[in-house]
């Protein structure tokens, strides 16, 4: 397996993570904005300034690629490298989540020293 430094991109920002998730299928910019808001249940919105910058960076780094054009709108999709980076990010998130899940219920009870 070719070793390219995919971990240098990690951790992804929340916006970048969701934008890459959305690009599991080819989408144009506006489609990405709508999908991110929808799948994040409204917790993440991506404005056009933010999206343009993330697209430019991801494309430059070869994590996404233009696949087609639909009425003047460019459609992007993940490259193989992009898919690997996203998979690693998801693994990180799983570890983060597992760590949090074990102590979450304790957090909702008063701390021992406050008694």
């Amino acid at each position: 397996m070719t070793k390219d430094k995919t971990d240098k991109y990690l951790p992804l920002t929340e916006a970048t993570y969701y934008i890459m998730l959305a690009l599991i299928e080819p989408l144009h910019g506006y489609g990405v904005m709508q999908k991110v808001e929808q799948i994040s249940q409204g917790t993440v919105k991506v404005g056009p300034g933010t999206l343009y910058g993330v697209f430019a960076t991801l494309e430059k780094e070869g994590l996404i690629i233009k696949v087609k054009e639909e009425d003047r709108r460019k459609c992007y999709a993940l490259t193989d490298k992009g898919r690997r980076v996203l998979a690693m990010q998801i693994q990180r998130l799983e570890i983060m989540h597992a760590n949090g899940a074990t102590i979450r219920k304790n957090l909702l009870e008063p701390a021992a020293d406050s008694l």
Binding site: T13, E14, A15, K45, G47, P48, G49, T50, G53, V54
Partner: peptide, 10 residues
């Protein structure tokens, strides 16, 4: 949405 930049990074 009234922001063109929606996170601190951008």
């Amino acid at each position: 949405e009234l922001e063109i930049y929606t996170d601190a990074e951008s």
